[in-house]
């Protein structure tokens, strides 16, 4: 799994690729939590290149969300493929997070 970070003004864009599963979630969580603890509270997670996500991956976003909420921040997702969208829907992530079709629409209104 790859974890890339881009800076765009006060927003961090995290692009994940590969499989986010029981083996890879720990490393992704460490990076994500470090980013948030460093004061970054506006995050866009781009999942265009993510192959699939299992519950180990979902849990890192739930943990990260608790942290950013305390900082009055937000995590937004963009570019979800069919499988990821299905997993998010089943899990009820649509009640917690906002999804956008691409980075440009996710960035809008985020400043």
């Amino acid at each position: 799994m790859e974890f890339e970070i881009q800076n765009l003004d006060h927003v961090k864009i995290i692009s994940l690729s590969g499989d986010l599963n029981a083996n890879t979630a720990g490393e992704a969580e460490t990076k994500l939590i470090q980013l948030i603890m460093g004061g970054n509270r506006k995050l866009i997670v781009d999942l265009e290149q993510l192959n699939y996500i299992s519950s180990a991956g979902l849990r890192i976003f739930l943990a990260a969300n608790k942290l950013v909420k305390k900082m009055d921040g937000e995590i937004r997702f963009c570019s979800l493929n069919r499988t990821v969208l299905e997993v998010f829907d089943i899990s009820g992530f649509n009640m917690i997070f906002k999804f956008y079709p691409d980075q440009a629409s996710a960035i809008q209104g985020f400043h």
């Binding site: 299992s54 519950s55 979902l58 739930l62 997993v87 899990s91 009820g92 009640m95 917690i96």
Partner: peptide, 15 residues
Amino acid sequence: SAEDLDRIGGLGLKL
């Protein structure tokens, strides 16, 4: 909810 299942377990089995 996802948060409940995260706390008590069961998110993965629901999937």
